[in-house]
């Protein structure tokens, strides 16, 4: 599947409190969570983000709490994919489990600017910056994880196994 979207860029160590503060964890509704997505990092983000937009961040994206509300809020906001130099471990697992596409690709992060239009091929992991025409190869998933992703998340995976 190929995604095309406009980039919002974030820095190092974007933590889960920035992605969705704990004061909003009293709901699991993706739309409700989306209304506060990234608000402590960029107060205007929930209003300006459009369906299909792509988050590109530096290292250690999603560090901090185990709250699955974080990838749910990002997915609920319509973000189609998150690309970072690296992800914190629990966020990485949670994103795969709920079916939010994430890619690790330090070279792409360095070569993509806020507002760029980029194309992402989730199957091959190829990221193309449509402004510059440059392409980048993201780190491929382990087979086991690709299997969970292909089934649309862990819930479907467990259902099929049982």
């Amino acid at each position: 599947m190929k995604l095309t979207g406009t980039v919002y860029k974030f820095g190092n160590d974007i933590d889960t409190d920035a992605i969705i503060p704990a004061r909003y964890l009293n709901t699991f509704d993706p739309q409700e969570l989306a209304r506060h997505c990234m608000e402590d990092a960029d107060a205007g983000f929930p209003d300006k983000v459009k369906r299909g937009d792509i988050i590109v961040a530096e290292k250690n994206f999603g560090c901090g709490s185990s709250r699955e509300h974080a990838p749910i809020a990002i997915k609920g906001a319509g973000v189609s994919c998150v690309i970072a130099k690296s992800f914190a471990r629990i966020f990485y697992r949670n994103a795969i489990n709920i079916g939010l596409p994430i890619l690790e690709c330090p070279e792409a992060v360095d070569a993509i600017q806020e507002g760029d239009s980029i194309e992402v091929d989730l199957q091959s992991g190829v990221i193309k910056n449509l402004r510059t025409g440059k392409t980048f190869q993201a780190t491929p998933f382990r087979e086991f994880m690709q299997d969970i992703i292909n089934k649309g998340g862990l819930i479907n995976y467990v259902k099929e196994k049982s």
Binding site: E68, I98, G153, L154, I155, V158
Partner: peptide, 17 residues
């Protein structure tokens, strides 16, 4: 630490990857 979906898988099966 894990997220809620991993927790659910653990609750059901007593196992996790």
């Amino acid at each position: 630490g894990v997220g809620s979906t991993d927790l659910a898988a653990g609750l059901v099966s007593g196992k996790l990857w």
